[in-house]
Simulated scan of single mutants.
Amino acid sequence: MSSPRRLRDLIARGGPPLMLPGAPNALTARVVEEAGYEAVYVSGAGVTNTFLGAPDLGLLTLNELADHVRAIADAVALPAIVDADTGFGNAINVQRTVRVLERAGAAGLQLEDQVSPKKCGHFSGKDVVSADEMVGKVRAAVDARTDDDFAIVARTDALATEGLEQAVDRIGRYRDAGADILFVEAPRSADQMRHIVRSVPGVHMANMVEGGLTPLTSRDELGDIGYAVALYANAAMRGAVAGMREVLDHLAEHGDTTRASELMISWQDRQSLVRKPDYDELERRYAAEANTPGADGSEQDGDVA
């Protein structure tokens, strides 16, 4: 089964919302998979933070993002939704973005209706393009995908700039243009979240941002409201930074890490996480084949005529 098909089946099965942790790199994606999650989100903010050491202000390029998607797709079997920000340009650029990320191994991508360069959805000072322009981008994305199961997530940031009803109107238009998953960013209350889901039938995604504008809501509560996908875009990354700081503080205080073993994974756990035993087995297999008589194509017995 293709990765886009598996993603669609996970969303369509009903029950509690699909939990979608974010991963800014392949190692984090390995941890997400190891923890038993069924899909992963490649966060534009997370990649920008970890790769560039910069804030989520539209600084990442398509090629940089695609490199991370390829690495993640090679490292894990999880279907990945990729945050493609504003699509890296106009509708024509969006088509190229879809083709590049689909070939890189994504199961779907997210587009948003902010002006470029965009800002994090929970930053102030955002602005949005016209609804007509975003409709064109969604249509372009739908037309560009080669696999009809490749998911198009349409996000609007209009709630902050135009109000709730305009955001609802926009997300309905994006659905009608072919978007598979609907994402209204940064609702301020559970009542707003309910209004969004009830006003526009479809598959909705909620973004849970610790310290952001939307109230943190449990998975079960999100399901009761009507959400099908619960996004935790940068929770793992932020937890990792907290862990790094703790280890480094310990090193600065004690001058060594001998008493910090409980703060980090073991050597064996680290090698297991990155699949070193699998690579060791491949090395043994191919070394054995290389040493097998005749493996180089020569005759094993007798002289060559």
Score class of each variant (00 low, 15 high):
181 I>Q: 00
303 D>P: 14
90 N>P: 13
27 L>T: 15
120 C>N: 06
244 M>L: 15
263 L>R: 02
100 V>A: 05
46 G>P: 09
147 D>Y: 08
252 A>H: 13
203 V>H: 01
97 T>L: 03
245 R>E: 14
153 V>L: 10
72 I>A: 02
4 P>Y: 05
207 N>L: 08
112 E>G: 06
251 L>C: 04
132 D>N: 09
224 D>R: 13
214 T>D: 05
218 S>V: 13
247 V>M: 12
138 V>I: 15
157 D>I: 12
118 K>M: 11
72 I>C: 06
199 S>V: 09
26 A>G: 07
60 L>I: 15
280 D>A: 10
293 P>L: 11
101 L>Y: 00
33 E>C: 09
189 S>M: 06
156 T>N: 00
187 P>D: 05
247 V>Y: 06
302 G>V: 12
132 D>A: 14
234 N>E: 05
118 K>D: 09
169 D>G: 13
195 H>L: 13
235 A>H: 11
2 S>V: 11
105 G>V: 09
282 L>E: 07
5 R>H: 13
77 A>M: 07
5 R>F: 13
304 V>F: 13
176 D>W: 02
171 I>H: 02
289 E>S: 05
125 G>D: 01
58 G>N: 03
131 A>T: 15
136 G>W: 06
76 V>I: 14
111 L>M: 01
78 L>Y: 02
186 A>G: 04
234 N>P: 11
232 Y>K: 00
118 K>N: 07
115 V>G: 05
235 A>D: 12
273 L>P: 12
304 V>G: 01
88 F>C: 03
177 A>S: 03
78 L>K: 01
58 G>E: 03
36 G>L: 12
220 D>T: 14
279 Y>M: 14
215 P>S: 00
254 H>N: 04
205 M>W: 09
184 V>I: 12
63 N>T: 15
219 R>H: 08
116 S>P: 06
211 G>N: 06
279 Y>D: 10
87 G>D: 03
148 D>K: 12
72 I>R: 01
227 Y>S: 01
165 E>C: 04
180 D>T: 06
59 L>Y: 12
212 G>Q: 03
32 V>N: 01
98 V>G: 00
125 G>Y: 07
43 S>T: 15
293 P>N: 01
277 P>R: 06
39 A>P: 11
114 Q>M: 13
273 L>T: 10
242 A>H: 08
283 E>L: 14
67 D>S: 13
207 N>F: 07
73 A>W: 05
109 L>C: 10
257 T>R: 06
184 V>G: 01
